[in-house]
Amino acid sequence: MAKLRGTGIAAVNYPTGMNLGGDPSQALIHATTTGTFVISLSSTDLGQGLKTVIAQIGAETLGVPFENVLIDTADTDTGPHCMGTFASRATHRVGNAVIMAAKEARKAMLEVAAEELEVSPDDLDTDGKGNIFVKGSPERKIDITSLALAAHFKYGRTISGRGMYIKPKSPVDPETGKMDPDSTEAHACVVAEVEVDTETGEVTVISLKSAYEVGRQVNPALVHGQIVGGAFMGMSHALYETTAPYYPSPDHAPGSFSEYIIPGPHELPHIESVVLEYPSVNGPYGVKGVGEMTANAPIPAIVNAVSNAIGVRLTEYPITPEKILRALEKSPKVKQLAENRS
């Protein structure tokens, strides 16, 4: 038989935040005696790198080095409330709460520094390297450790801050469905290139090339990680994964990874992406969110590419080899190939 090639595209939006809002997160920040800033949360890192990006946002707002910021999460006795890590919400919500807390802590920090340097707090700035200096005369400065020691033992001042973010809960009109379901929208366009083996029905994804627009990237390497991970997950969902292979029949439900098929590293397609940054209005430093969406667009892109390859429009996923072989029976392209041969 033959190997047929096809390409497909998909363009998608993805909403940030719990549907309809009403999902708060809080942050508390305090400086230790030696100038380490502890950000207390009850948020969860699912492996996506939340603990890292939140420390970056905290360090940026405080104006201190990244190394001076610790994330203390998640303990319900010490960390203030967080709704949870889902709905592409964590960086957006927790990041905003951290900025609010860090602004308050920074204000306290500058006030103590102003006393030490005998200037007004308005005349001070941070260099991001661990010093607070007088604007216009950078040699007049105090380092963060000396400052925190002075705050604790000389002035009896706390360098701390409280932050919270919520998009208030909004109702749905039951008649018209009028609602406000998101805080901001990220976007993506994925182009898939596939090869279909008409003998076995197997699909090889040759490449997944994508453009993402996710607002500000706090950590481009972690965004890239999400794009690659999501591309692979989306490919797996498009081609293999289901708990009900003969849905709606409940039969043949897989119970292990030998039956629930997920592709291996050798099936990883060529993945390439560009990321555009159009900062959102309400995200921390313009963040939108890249958590869930990266697994979405690859699915229709791959299904469209397979449809394009075989000349039959597929309307369900996963498109397992069995489903593709059944579709191929209806394919004018394949009929043509067979006729040419005979």
Binding site: A11, N13, G177, M179, H187, L276
Partner: peptide, 29 residues
Amino acid sequence: YRNGDMRPHQKVVEDATLIEVMKAAAELV
């Protein structure tokens, strides 16, 4: 959709970039 358009659930589009990502993806491939 473009910024300023009305979505079916009656929310005005504020931060659309669908056209931009499509242009970027077309260029990439």
